[in-house]
Design a protein around this nucleic acid. Structure first.
Lengths: 96, 96
DNA sequence: ATAAAGTAGTTTATAATATAAACCAAATTA
DNA sequence: TAATTTGGTTTATATTATAAACTACTTTAT
């Protein structure tokens, strides 16, 4: 009847992060924070979870002297997102 | 950018309950439990929250001698569900 | 040179949530 | 009449989400 909703993606902020990353080649921490409106602390925690799940990669480097954290969605992440969307359809019909 | 997801509906079980109720005139506790696959305890808690939010009504009576709990979605509930679906679109965009 | 303020995050504490386990009351069955 | 089933509720626990506090550094102002 209802497909299970991947709990890792069924989170407002993590879903927003994935949504942003789907549309770009990569996005840094500050950009994600701006796009999602999240606090830095919350974002830090959530991208860590996404990385541990293998849904995104996190690369740490520097832009000049300042630290820079760059995130990218992975193939697994794209697949998981698509599956999540499919599962959602079992709850909300094709109306969406 | 991203619309807020009503936290009352952004819950797998509550969303499933609302989804079932959208398609029927009314549904009793046992039917909801069967359709959603939830445990009775969890369902009891979640329909209570939906009722307190005004999204469903809960009517208690008897079917013969056995207790029977009947749920119905309200106008507010329908509106909230539709708004939730609209908000979801800001995350999953064209994909769904 | 040094203090103050800003940037880019992480860690941690707390509140909220979801969930199952334990329970209750009555009905049914053996 | 004892055990089981039905239809739930209450409560305890684990998980989650979130903000607040903190770290480490850079930039700017004095």
């Amino acid at each position: 009847m209802f497909k299970e909703l991947n709990p890792l993606l069924h989170s407002e902020l993590r879903l927003a992060v994935m949504s942003v990353l789907l549309g770009v080649e990569s996005a840094d921490f500050v950009f994600l924070r701006e796009q999602t409106g999240a606090t830095a602390g919350n974002l830090s925690v959530q991208i860590d979870k996404l990385q541990k799940a293998g849904y995104i990669t996190i690369e740490k480097g520097f832009k000049g002297k300042m630290p820079r954290t760059t995130c990218r969605i992975t193939e697994d992440g794209i697949a998981a997102f698509e599956e999540y969307v499919t599962a959602l359809r079992s709850y909300i019909g094709k109306g969406i």
